[in-house]
Amino acid sequence: MQGNEAAALYRLLTWLSPSFPVGAFSYSSGIEWAVEAGDIADAASLRGWLAAMLADGPGFCDGVFLAQTHRAASSGDDAGLGEIVELASAFAPSRERHLETSAQGRAFVEIARAAWNCAALDRLIACCGGAIVYPVAVGLVSAAHAIPLAATLHAFLHALTSNWISAGARLVPLGQTDGQRVLAQLEPIVAATAARALEASLDDLGSATFRADLASMRHETQYTRLFRS
């Protein structure tokens, strides 16, 4: 492995590790309400719920935003970058989902600047203007460090899926082995979603996971909550 490839892999493993302190463990993306409502009750129903979120909901949309951010940042399209930042922030379907993605995006950028800063990242952040949501933040930082888009996108979707499974495993609850089985079963869907997001444009954005969107709204008034979303 060449030096640049090793550095890119090291940074991706660090930034998208569960130990990178963006607070992902405190969000469930509505899964907490889905468990209480009985939509998710075991490993099979968790797998089905997450497969839909990946392929037809926030997984795909976040993948498109990351890819478009990375390309705009890498090509110096500052005007296009600003439009992507604004659209991505407006795309969250509920107040809690917006909190989830904006808080993680802010934390990701702040920690990256504190520990892995570079001149290119400072310039890109200055072009953004508004709130930087999580997939946009990952796209910005990875582009600033010249990390390849395809690897970044796949790693991001893997981290997103892993966090959803972690929330589901704690809520159902499921054992660690069941959680790993779900992650293994979702591998082809993560890969297919990443491939679609790489080929998609902003015009291809769209979600059909209405139940998951409703879950994120219902969670706002859920009586007993462990998670912030």
Rank of each mutant, 00 (worst) to 15 (best):
M1P: 15
Q2S: 12
Q2W: 09
A7L: 12
A8Q: 12
A8V: 09
A8K: 10
L9A: 15
L13I: 03
L16G: 02
S17D: 12
F20E: 04
F20H: 06
A24D: 04
F25W: 10
S26R: 01
S26Q: 08
Y27C: 10
S28Q: 06
E32Y: 02
E32H: 05
W33C: 02
A43T: 03
S45V: 02
L46M: 00
R47D: 03
G48N: 09
W49I: 02
L50V: 10
A52C: 03
A52V: 05
M53N: 14
L54Y: 07
L54D: 08
A55C: 08
G57H: 01
P58Y: 11
G59M: 11
G59N: 13
G63N: 09
V64P: 06
V64G: 10
F65E: 09
L66W: 08
T69E: 08
S74R: 15
E83H: 14
E83F: 13
V85K: 09
L87K: 13
S89P: 08
A92Y: 12
P93S: 08
S94I: 07
R95C: 11
R95W: 11
R95E: 12
E96I: 11
E96W: 10
R97I: 14
R97A: 15
S102Q: 12
A103K: 14
G105N: 10
G105C: 09
F108G: 05
R113T: 12
A114W: 07
A115E: 11
C118G: 06
A119Y: 03
L121P: 07
D122W: 00
R123Y: 02
C128I: 13
A131S: 05
A131C: 09
Y134S: 06
P135V: 14
V138Y: 05
G139S: 13
V141Q: 01
S142N: 14
A151S: 14
T152C: 15
T152W: 11
H154T: 15
F156Y: 15
L160A: 15
L160W: 14
A167R: 08
A167P: 07
G168D: 11
V172S: 04
P173E: 04
P173D: 05
G175V: 06
Q176P: 06
R181G: 05
L183D: 01
Q185C: 03
L186N: 01
E187M: 00
E187P: 00
P188T: 04
V190H: 01
V190P: 00
A192M: 04
A192K: 04
T193Y: 05
R196G: 01
L198Q: 12
E199T: 07
S201R: 02
L202F: 00
S207H: 01
A208S: 10
F210V: 04
A212I: 09
A212H: 11
A212T: 08
D213M: 08
H219G: 08
Q222D: 07
Y223W: 08
T224E: 12
T224H: 12
R225F: 08
R225E: 08
L226N: 07
L226H: 11
